[in-house]
C-alpha cells in the first residue's frame, strides 16, 4: 500500500469541464483564458497578446458603423444550384445547412452605414457560410454593393474572409471574379475610393480579384492571405513552407498590402482615409 494516498478531493476535480462553452475563451496564441464579455468588449482581440479571434459579418458592420447601426440591402439574394451538384452531397443541402446554422442567406452581407458621419457602402464576407466561398450570389451582392456606391457617389469598403471561389458552382464561381473586378473599374473611373480589408483567411479567387484591388489594402494582423493553398504549394514544391508564409506580416514585407491594422483601430484608420478623401 502506498504511503501517500490522496484522501481529499482533487482541487480541480472536473470543474473546468463544467464551464459552458464560450463563457471563457482560451487564446490559441498565448494561452490566456479570457472572459467572453471581456473579449467582446475588446473586439475579440486577446487582451494579453492581441491575437485576433475570428469575427463575422455582423460584427464587422457593427464595429464600423456609428452606434452600431447599419442598413442591410439585397438580403434576399441567395444561391441556386445551376449544376445540380451532388458530390459528395447535394449543394442545395449544403446551402440549407449553412443558412440554418448562420441565419444568413449568403456568405456576404452588404449594408449602408456611416463612419463618423461619412456614409459608405460596406460588404462584409462571412467565413461561417460555406467557408465564405464566392458563388454567383456572393458575386452579385458584391457587384451590387459597388453599384450602390456608384449611385450614391460614396466610398466602398469590402471586408474579405473567404477560402476562395465556390467549387459547387464551377465556372460560374470563377466568373464572379471577373464580374466583381469589372465593377471596381467603374468605381475607379468615377474617382470613388475603394478600401479592401483582408481578414483571416482571404485566399484563392477572392484574393485574386477584389480583395487585392483596394486603393488601400488593409490587413488584420496574422491573417492568412494568398493565392494558392498551403497544402497545394507544399505538394508542388516538395518542401516545408517558411514560418509566417502568407500571413499579413509577410505580405506587408513583400509590398502587397498598405498596412496592417489592429481591429480595435480599424474604424479610426478607415476614417482617416475617408477624411483624407474628402479633405
Amino acid at each position: 500500500m502506498n504511503w501517500f494516498v490522496r484522501t481529499k478531493e482533487k482541487i480541480f476535480s472536473g470543474v473546468r469541464k463544467q464551464i459552458p462553452d464560450g463563457i471563457w475563451q482560451k487564446c490559441p496564441k498565448c494561452g490566456e483564458v479570457i472572459y467572453f464579455k471581456e473579449l467582446d468588449k475588446n473586439a475579440r482581440v486577446c487582451t494579453k497578446c492581441s491575437y485576433h479571434f475570428r469575427i463575422y459579418s455582423e460584427d464587422y458592420l457593427e464595429l464600423l458603423a456609428d452606434n452600431g447601426l447599419f442598413a442591410e440591402f439585397n438580403i434576399a439574394i441567395s444561391s441556386e444550384d445551376p449544376l445540380k451538384f451532388r458530390i459528395p452531397k447535394r449543394y442545395t443541402d449544403s446551402i440549407q445547412t449553412a443558412k440554418r446554422k448562420t441565419g444568413l442567406n449568403e456568405a456576404v452581407r452588404t449594408a449602408e452605414l456611416t463612419i463618423q458621419s461619412i456614409p459608405v457602402v460596406v460588404a462584409a464576407m462571412d467565413f461561417r457560410f460555406i467557408g465564405g466561398s464566392m458563388g454567383s450570389a456572393v458575386g452579385e451582392k458584391i457587384a451590387r454593393a459597388a453599384d450602390r456606391a456608384l449611385k450614391r457617389n460614396i466610398p466602398l469598403i469590402i471586408i474579405s474572409a473567404s477560402g476562395g471561389a465556390r467549387m459547387q458552382e464551377g465556372v460560374l464561381s470563377l466568373m464572379q471574379m471577373a464580374k466583381t473586378s469589372a465593377r471596381l473599374s467603374l468605381l475607379a473611373e468615377k474617382g470613388l475610393p475603394y478600401i479592401s480589408v483582408l481578414t483571416d483567411p482571404t485566399t484563392g479567387g477572392v484574393s485574386a480579384s477584389y480583395a487585392m484591388l483596394g486603393d488601400i489594402n488593409i490587413a488584420e494582423p496574422g491573417a492568412l492571405i494568398g493565392f494558392a493553398g498551403q497544402r497545394v504549394i507544399k505538394q508542388t514544391i516538395g518542401q516545408d513552407l517558411p514560418n509566417g508564409f502568407q500571413r499579413s506580416e509577410f505580405l506587408l514585407e513583400k509590398g502587397l498590402i498598405d498596412l496592417i491594422c489592429d481591429r480595435r483601430q480599424l474604424k479610426s484608420t478607415i476614417y482617416k482615409f475617408l477624411q483624407f478623401n474628402y479633405a
Binding site: A188, S207, A208, S209, M212, L213, F227
Partner: peptide, 21 residues
C-alpha cells in the same frame, strides 16, 4: 497559375486581379 513560394511573394493574386480589372 503556379502555386509556389516565389509566386506568392511577388503577388500572384494581385497580378491576376489587376488583369481582370
Amino acid at each position: 497559375a503556379y502555386p509556389g513560394i516565389e509566386a506568392e511573394e511577388r503577388g500572384q493574386s494581385e497580378a491576376i486581379a489587376r488583369n481582370l480589372l
